[in-house]
């Protein structure tokens, strides 16, 4: 009995030492070395792909933002985003999805409402959006709530509104969207997309020029 207690303690000690050595290797040296490599070779990317405009940082090209005015392109809904519930001295955005099921009445309602709003807000005096034109990404929340992209269909659908609100020609705004439409990587990986922040930065630059 006494012997087995001693043996167990000895074995646990070996386990603990193994853990500490491997922690030093995989939990201290590895991340530090990698941070060194990342910071020297890919400095901008390792720090969040920050985008500058008008002489200041306006966000990350990877992280979707909210609060664009009606004259700008709008991102996807983000009903799954939260705010932090612990460590509340910070005002953190909690990434996340709604997790609502496909048959949840709340989700059905929010999709229908979003669709009606997209149709209403993007219809102008000379251009009427049909509900069938609204793509799925315009009325659903993304997985992260931080999706930086919209589909080219959703961007195209917003062109008339953006042109009208800013007194630009539809063709000019459409060209802006086309220039910012990224195709699938190598033609088949992922889906075509438009980065909303980059598009809006270009739009603001265009407005400043005209």
């Amino acid at each position: 009995m006494n012997n087995s207690v001693v043996n167990t303690a000895r074995l646990f000690g070996a386990g603990l030492r193994a853990l500490l050595v491997l922690t030093l290797l995989t939990g201290v040296l590895y991340p530090l070395a990698l941070t060194g490599v990342a910071q020297s070779l890919f400095h901008d990317k390792a720090n969040g792909s920050q985008v500058r405009a008008d002489g200041r940082v306006v966000g990350s090209s990877l992280i979707g933002q909210r609060g664009y005015g009606p004259g700008y392109f709008q991102p996807r809904p983000a009903n799954g985003l939260g705010t932090n519930s612990v460590n509340t001295r910070y005002k953190l955005v909690l990434s996340g999805a709604t997790n609502l099921s496909a048959d949840n009445p709340k989700l059905i309602r929010s999709v229908e409402q979003a669709k009606a709003e997209v149709v209403k807000e993007n219809s102008t005096a000379r251009y009427k959006v049909r509900p069938s034109q609204v793509p799925a990404d315009a009325v659903t929340s993304s997985g992260s709530g931080l999706d930086p992209d919209i589909s080219p269909q959703y961007a195209d659908l917003q062109v008339h509104r953006v042109a009208e609100k800013n007194g630009l020609s539809v063709a000019r705004v459409q060209k802006l969207v086309d220039d910012h439409t990224e195709d699938r990587t190598l033609g088949f990986i992922g889906e075509p997309r438009v980065n909303v922040l980059e598009l809006n930065i270009a739009l603001r630059a265009l407005l400043a020029k005209t």
Binding site: A136, S141, S142, G143
Partner: peptide, 14 residues
């Protein structure tokens, strides 16, 4: 109603 299973999915992945 949305016209695609994009709830909880990212545009870049589809």
């Amino acid at each position: 109603a949305a016209g695609g299973a994009m709830e909880g999915k990212e545009v870049r992945f589809g």
